[in-house]
Structures are given as structure tokens and as C-alpha cells.
Design a protein around this nucleic acid. Structure first.
Lengths: 164, 164
DNA sequence: TATTGTTATACTCTATAACTATA
DNA sequence: TATAGTTATAGAGTATAACAATA
């Protein structure tokens, strides 16, 4: 017997490879599965914020600036786990959209303190709600306990870096 | 009282931001945490295979070619979730290293069947063992039950794509 | 000497569009 | 008309190295 789903799979898959069950050793590697899952979540994020929406790195930067007004670019880069140089164009973009301002610190004139604008704070909270809602919808198949387990494990992996 | 760990944290973090506890709304977003965790795993993968080691996409392609000899490039791209065009240079690299050969299919002369060489199979199994060992070490803080839960959840997320 | 922000530069990964040769 | 492989091209995202201003 051949189900409709199998017929559909075979049409997209003329070599009759069993793409819906075990594929190879890859399925047991955490890295491979994480990459594949991240691609799905990344796509969902971009769809959530639409055509001219900000990118995940830009969103993350804005989030931290809203949470920690006056943060310096160096510290922001450190918290995001990226290089200072990479942050420049991200902050440029947020500044151009009037979501934040670079303010020279009086105590250390090398530092540009990042200060969110009222518009930036407002836009951020709207975007956060949108992103959160999309993510919740995408992950509707996971119980809330599964979701918190997942986040807990992901944070544990991030923490494992420094130790190794 | 100030612990040694706190002193160290403060040195790297002059603004006294509490980078070790709750950072912001980001900590609750699955996407953000997955990206951060993937960066750690990706770095570990590159370290595992060393200076001139193959990239994760190339490794994944080789894995599927070894598992499914005679697979076509189109089907391989489909299984990897990437475009056909992006696969060309990946296969070029594997062919140059004599890990596989492109063989014209007699039944359909458009198709290049991908056939692993003996050397390719051998190299693949060695790399798989190395990658697996590094990943196990990196994830030593997770129990084997946590690891399988994680993989299960990641696969569930990948499967959620088509439905949304 | 060291750090902050910046620029220049390059590399990886990925996508879209168009081409060719086959079917 | 449609598909397989390919090329050309472009756009994110990220890194390294070097620089000026400041500490």
C-alpha cells in the first residue's frame, strides 16, 4: 500500500531515498540538528518582522541597548559574542532609524554610550511581541516544559565553551 | 564580599553589567539561545577537524554521499536543505580531495551520480569519529538523556517548518 | 602601553537568475 | 516544458589587522 504522503514524497524524491526517517549519522550529531533547526527559526524570525525588518543580530543589539542604556559598544559586542568591528554597521543602522543615539561619555571620551530613543524603546517592544508570537506559533508543537528544557540545555551548551 | 570570579568578570566588564545572570528578553527567545549555542558547537567542529579540515556543510554532504552512493546532486541538495547551485563548489572540493567522483548516469545523462571513493569512505569514518568525540567532550555536562532530548526537540522544530 | 571606536579587507555561506544539455 | 548541473553575481554575517583618539 502506498499512502498519499508517500506518493508526494516520491515525486519530490525520485531516487526513493527515505528522507522522512533516519538519514545517516548526521541525525545523531547535535551540531547538524542544531544548524537545521536554527535555519527554520531564523526564517521564521525574518518573516515575523517582514520585508524591511531588522536582522537577528540588530534586534539583539537593540534589545541589550534598551535593557542597558548607556552601554558602550565594546561591552555590547562582548555580550553579543561578536567583534567590536562588526558592531559598527549594526549600530549605524539603528542610529539611522532613530532607535538609539551615540553619546560621548564625559568621563571617558573614547567611549560612545548607546542611548535608546523613545521611538527605539517603543519599536523594540512591538518587535519583541511580534517575534515572541511567531516563535510561540512555530513551536506550538512543543509543550512549555519542553521549551524551557530546550532553552536550559542551549544555555548549558553556551556555558560549556569557556570550560573546554 | 567579592569572589575571584567576580573580580575577573568585572575586569572584562567595566560597566559592571551582570553578564552571568539574566541579560534581557533575549534569554527567553529560543532563536537567540540556539544561535549562541550553535556558534559554540560550530567552533568546536572546526577545532576538531583542524586547520585544513572540511566545513560542516561539506562534511554533511560527504556523509550523505557515503550513506547513499549514487545519489544525485539535486537530491543531495534537497536533503541538505540548500540550493543546487550552492552544492556545486562543495562537490568540487570533495572531488578534488578524491573523496568522491561524479559519474554520468547511463539512464539519464543529465544526472551526475555521486560515488564515494574508498579513500572518501575511510576519511569520512575517521572524521566522524573525531567530530563525535569532540562533541561528546563539549557536551560532557549533559546527560545522555538530556542529549537525546535535545536532538529530539531540534528535529521536532525542523519538522514544524512545513506545517507553518 | 592599553582600550575605544572605526575602516579596510576578506572569507564563508547562501540565495536568485540565467544558461546548457538533456528529458 | 521541465529538470540537472552549472555559472555569475550579490548579500548577509563575521573575522583580522591596522589606525587615530584617548586613557
Amino acid at each position: 500500500m502506498t499512502t498519499r504522503a508517500q506518493l508526494k514524497a516520491n515525486k519530490a524524491n525520485p531516487d526513493n531515498l527515505d528522507i522522512n526517517t533516519t538519514v545517516s549519522d548526521l541525525e545523531n550529531l547535535v551540531g547538524y540538528n542544531m544548524k537545521r533547526a536554527y535555519v527554520v527559526i531564523h526564517k521564521d524570525f525574518r518573516e515575523a518582522l517582514g520585508e524591511n525588518g531588522i536582522s537577528p543580530p540588530t534586534f539583539s543589539a537593540l534589545s541589550l541597548v534598551v535593557t542597558y542604556p548607556q552601554i558602550s559598544q565594546s561591552n555590547l559586542a562582548r555580550m553579543l559574542g561578536i567583534e567590536r568591528s562588526g558592531l559598527v554597521s549594526i549600530i549605524d543602522g539603528l542610529e539611522q532609524q532613530d532607535y538609539l543615539a551615540r553619546v560621548h561619555s564625559p568621563s571617558d571620551r573614547r567611549v560612545q554610550a548607546l542611548v535608546p530613543t523613545a521611538e527605539g524603546v517603543k519599536a523594540y517592544h512591538a518587535m519583541l511581541a511580534t517575534v515572541q508570537a511567531h516563535e510561540d506559533k512555530l513551536l506550538a508543537g512543543l509543550s512549555s516544559s519542553e521549551k524551557s528544557t530546550l532553552v536550559k540545555l542551549l544555555i548549558k551548551i553556551r556555558a560549556a565553551e569557556s570550560q573546554a
